[in-house]
Amino acid sequence: MHETASGDLREDPFVRGLLAKLPASARATFSDEQLLALKAALGGRAWGVHAVDIRWTLKFWRWRYYFVLLAGRNRRELSRREREVARMAMALFVAGFITLSTLLGLLVLYLTKSALGIDLLPGFSLGIWGWFQDSFLR
């Protein structure tokens, strides 16, 4: 769908955004054909705003290197491989969360038992209660 009237093409959101980034003196110099060519060449690029957008440059001797860190919600369709990796990452995250939560819960139960003076195995101690008292209660 190509707009033929210059006014219609310049109202296109992509073209408006592109022209807004140019100096006012250069905006009027583009023909419709040039604007359409720019839209076709650059239109596939996502100009979206990212939740995290960190860009910096590092000069190393005679060369300059740039680094970009972008993060945000993924709105594109994932490939089969990407979906598998995402599922595996989520499974590892959930397993890690459950493991850490269980260990923290056991620690709280152990410290509570020790604070109440309950001795389940007479003459045996893990030493956690003594460490906790020395580190946090004195």
Rank of each mutant, 00 (worst) to 15 (best):
M1L: 11
E3M: 06
E3W: 07
T4W: 08
A5M: 12
A5V: 11
D8I: 06
D8W: 12
R10L: 03
R10P: 12
R10K: 08
R10Y: 05
E11M: 11
P13A: 07
V15M: 06
R16H: 07
L18N: 00
L22F: 09
L22I: 01
S25A: 13
S25K: 07
A26N: 02
A26S: 07
R27A: 04
R27K: 03
T29D: 08
T29Q: 04
T29L: 13
Q34L: 12
L36I: 12
L38M: 15
L42I: 00
L42K: 04
G43Y: 07
G44R: 05
R45A: 11
R45F: 15
R45V: 15
A46H: 13
A46N: 14
A46Q: 11
W47E: 10
G48K: 15
G48I: 14
G48D: 13
H50M: 14
A51S: 12
V52F: 09
I54F: 08
R55C: 04
R55Q: 06
T57H: 00
T57N: 08
T57K: 01
L58N: 01
L58S: 02
K59N: 01
K59I: 05
F60R: 06
F60T: 04
W61Q: 04
Y66M: 09
L69M: 10
L69Q: 07
L70D: 14
R73A: 06
R73C: 03
R73F: 06
R73Q: 06
R75L: 11
E77K: 07
E77M: 10
E77I: 11
L78R: 10
L78W: 08
R81D: 11
E82F: 01
E82G: 11
R83T: 04
A86S: 08
A89M: 09
A89Y: 07
M90F: 11
M90P: 01
A91C: 12
F93P: 00
F93M: 15
G96D: 09
I98L: 13
T99C: 09
L100Y: 04
L100R: 03
S101I: 02
S101R: 06
T102S: 10
L103S: 05
L103K: 01
L104T: 05
G105T: 06
L107N: 02
L107P: 01
V108C: 09
L109Q: 10
L109E: 07
Y110A: 08
Y110K: 06
T112Y: 15
K113N: 14
L116N: 12
G117H: 08
I118G: 00
L121Y: 13
P122T: 02
P122W: 00
F124A: 04
S125R: 01
S125E: 14
S125Q: 11
L126S: 13
L126R: 01
G127I: 14
G127C: 09
I128P: 02
F132I: 03
Q133P: 01
D134S: 05
D134M: 09
D134A: 04
D134R: 10
D134Y: 07
D134Q: 11
R138T: 12
R138D: 05
